[in-house]
Write a protein that binds this DNA or RNA. Structure first.
Lengths: 260, 260
DNA sequence: AATTTTGATGCATAAAAACGCGTAAAAATG
DNA sequence: CATTTTTACGCGTTTTTATGCATCAAAATT
């Protein structure tokens, strides 16, 4: 019996096929199982299994006959933004009451702020400065808010601009309100951040703004991170997802911080 | 017997049709089953089934004879970006070949550029300046591209920043390549734009860049708009969705413009 | 009201997907 | 090194899906 060596010579590994498929989808926006079967010299069955795998990893959208790219805009940020959505929305709703018509506001890039941006009623007029891509994008849907985007080098994981440009832009501003998320807040250490760049930017935001409002979920309270942003007395209001009368806040209240 | 190759060549996947229909509805506020049947080369029957599906997903409002948009004022940019996707992708693929590793590039906010941003291979290194939110967001998915966002006041319909800040930022730049879309290009009038702000920004881009590459679909060629951007000799290359040997381009070639 | 356009429904068919099974190579195990 | 176990595939077979067509019902149009 003749052994067909030729056939065996070139068979791609599964992983290689996957790479190939992803690359092709990226480039052509569409792949057909039949084409792939021919191109990769495996049965359509195998292609289908490949497609199913990639699809279950959310890397492609499998459809009858082939696959298409997954549409969605952002991935990692988007995932985070859907985390603890319930809490974030609670906070956002409370924070809404602090916005008055005609104000100039600066917002940090936190996912809670994104929630806030989503629910600002369309009859509110305001000017919002931000350095977060998703927040700016969200606000473009709003009919009357004026958006000023603060440019600079993009920090991909958080989809915000950072760096000197941002710092220098912000230090030239004067705003009424400043909404910012935080990674840690505590009476003695004040507000702290794990990221040096971010801590610096937040410092600028605070000195640029008349009132400082910190939005944070319960689990950030009493956490301390590496870099200091501001002592507690610089914070005007903390908005959280728990009851403002909770005893957790006693110390904060003594320092004159409002809890919402 | 004649085998009809043409017929076999392109049949869209159901999902693709759906996307096409949605894009068209948003753009023209109305679609007719008969038109779609011809455009998508399927029976009206199938179109009706498509429309029913989309309608049951509340994405469109199905009516006698066709369908209408379901109120909501989704961002007009996204609408445009999914329209004529095929052509835009063709252009983007061609344009890809012009990008070399390590270059500094500036991109305008055109939807064709968005397509380009989507398909840049992950092994390419480059620095990209842009003032388009969607493009910047798209590029955050790329592992190695450095993105610099040019800040300023946001122009919502196009999701780009405009204004003095943008102009002044760009005039301080020096880039290797400049990819820009256009609303009209013509041998005698050169490149033209309907929007004054945009025309001004594009002028800056051109003078900041070593090479100027214009991406445009066939239908923009020989159109003339209100505001001049640049005479034809400032353009190095035009990338379109049609064959570069097409006679349409003869005049352009005489002026030294490369066609891709 | 008559006529023309659309829409819905059932049916036929071809293509694609899923499922189960067998096999052979690769990896793990004793 | 022998032998299990696992993994990756391919091949039938059965289901499901996508689509067109014919027919009849429901509109819109005249």
């Amino acid at each position: 019996m003749v052994v067909n060596i030729i056939n065996d010579v070139q068979r791609m590994l599964k992983e290689e096929r996957h790479q190939y498929i992803l690359a092709k989808i990226k480039l052509s926006r569409k792949v057909l199982s039949t084409d792939l079967s021919i191109e990769l010299k495996v049965s359509e069955d195998t292609i289908r299994r490949d497609l199913n795998e990639l699809s279950s990893k959310k890397l492609i959208k499998k459809v009858h006959g082939g696959a298409l790219p997954i549409d969605n805009l952002a991935s990692s940020y988007l995932e985070r933004s859907n985390f603890n959505l319930e809490e974030k929305n609670t906070i956002a709703k409370k924070a809404l009451s602090l916005i008055k018509d005609g104000q100039v506001i600066i917002m940090s890039g936190s996912t809670t702020n994104l929630q806030l941006a989503k629910i600002i009623p369309s009859d509110i007029n305001a000017t919002i400065y931000t350095y977060s891509l998703p927040i700016a994008l969200e606000l473009t849907k709003h009919p009357s808010i004026e958006i000023i985007f603060i440019g600079g080098k993009l920090y991909k994981p958080a989809q915000v601009t950072i760096g000197l440009d941002v710092v220098s832009s912000i230090s030239q501003l004067r705003t009424d309100l400043c909404f910012m998320g935080t990674e840690g807040i505590n009476v003695s250490s004040g507000m702290t951040e794990p990221n040096w760049e971010v801590s610096h930017i937040k410092k600028c935001m605070i000195s640029a703004s008349n009132k400082v409002i910190v939005l944070c979920t319960k689990n950030k309270i009493n956490k301390i991170k590496r870099y200091a942003v501001a002592p507690i007395h610089k914070i005007d209001t903390i908005v959280t997802n728990i009851n403002p009368t909770d005893s957790t806040f006693n110390d904060f209240k003594e320092k004159g911080v409002k809890i919402l």
